[in-house]
């Protein structure tokens, strides 16, 4: 078993719980030992960097300093979230490139009796570990139920293949790592031209029209290629494309219903794990139809209450169209 220092990031415990659950389910099969960094803090996402420079880098570097203390032979930090991965990598990279930044950050870290030597850790994304350390042959050998008959749009988003300080990816704009992984699982990966286009990032909260257009492009692209699913490697991308799909549809009067799931969830299915253990059912756009194509049924997650559909409209009298009357009879 190879041991890695693991930085989950805030989303894995909340909005991207399905990513976390599916990762836990597949890591045993893959022989991954993920040692969580004790008492890690938020990386600041894309917000802190735009407010204060030294505090933003100190916030990120507290995690790197804690990871070094815990290192025990492993020097590699794995982050499953793109923004976390980039922030950790960025802090390490810029503190090396600009030693004054590293000095100031370390002065600040001293207030907490911490220290980080820039360049002493390797910061890598989970997909990179699976492709380059575990290897596709190994992954292929663990497949019990090949995902034949399902068409998947492989979607990486921005911050994994770019800016790519350590040149780990096959291409910055059209890398094929995720495609090859999906093929190894038996799924059909479409050659998705938008695979590293932006999901909108934090724009749903700032400039909704900007965000909805970026989301629309991706949904439209996946729809054009008749993808059953869009697979992502990032909690933010999943959130924007899944949770804001309904609002985007309303904004453009479209009706896309593209399920957005994490690549680890598909890996779990191919390894024969129970879909319930893989976080299926947590997505807002249902995967039911897509997964029925490979003969799987998706349960509701524990604790989730299904709202009973109202048989007829109640409450205030509202004007209705004849078609509505028919539907509610």
């Amino acid at each position: 078993m190879t041991s890695y220092l693991f930085y989950p990031g805030c989303s894995m415990e909340t909005s991207a719980k399905a990513y976390y659950e599916s990762l836990i389910a597949v890591k045993k099969t893959l022989g991954l030992d993920l040692v969580e960094i004790d008492d890690w803090n938020c990386c600041g996402a894309t917000e802190y960097l735009g407010i204060n420079l030294i505090p933003a880098y100190a916030l990120i570097s507290r995690n790197l300093a804690l990871a070094t203390q815990q290192a025990n032979g492993s020097r590699t930090v794995v982050a499953p979230c793109s923004a976390c991965y980039l922030n950790l990598a960025k802090a390490d990279h810029y503190m090396l490139e600009r030693p004054e930044l590293g000095e100031k950050v370390n002065l600040a870290l001293q207030a907490g009796n911490l220290f980080y030597k820039p360049g002493s850790l390797e910061i890598r994304h989970l997909l990179d570990i699976l492709i380059n350390d575990v290897g596709l042959e190994e992954i292929k050998s663990k497949v019990k139920k090949p995902l034949r008959g399902i068409k998947v749009a492989p979607y990486l988003g921005c911050m994994v293949p770019r800016p790519d300080y350590k040149k780990r990816w096959s291409d910055h704009e059209h890398p094929d790592e995720l495609d090859r992984l999906l093929s190894a699982l038996g799924a059909e990966a479409i050659d998705f031209p938008l695979k590293t286009h932006c999901c909108g990032g934090h724009m749903p909260q700032i400039s909704p029209s900007t965000a909805f257009e970026l989301i629309r492009r991706l949904l439209h692209g996946a729809d054009l290629y008749e993808a059953d699913l869009l697979v992502t490697v990032c909690p933010m991308c999943q959130m924007n494309l899944d949770a804001f799909q309904a609002e985007t549809n309303r904004y453009f009067h479209t009706n896309y219903k593209i399920p957005i799931i994490f690549f680890t969830q598909l890996m779990g299915l191919a390894f024969g794990e129970d879909p319930k253990e893989l976080g299926f059912g947590r997505e807002l756009v249902s995967t039911e139809f897509a997964l029925s194509r490979i003969g799987l049924e998706i349960p509701e997650p524990d604790g989730s209450k299904v709202q009973p559909k109202r048989a007829k409209k109640t409450g205030l009298p509202m004007p209705t169209m004849p078609a509505d009357e028919e539907a509610h009879k």
Binding site: K17, A108, A111, G281, R282, P301, S304
Partner: peptide, 23 residues
């Protein structure tokens, strides 16, 4: 679908973090 927590999670070293950020 339990994708949003009702209460925030506070880290144990919050005072350490606050001291670092203050400096």
């Amino acid at each position: 679908k339990q994708r949003m927590e009702i209460t925030p999670h506070r880290i144990e070293g919050i005072n350490q973090l606050k001291a670092i950020l203050q400096l």
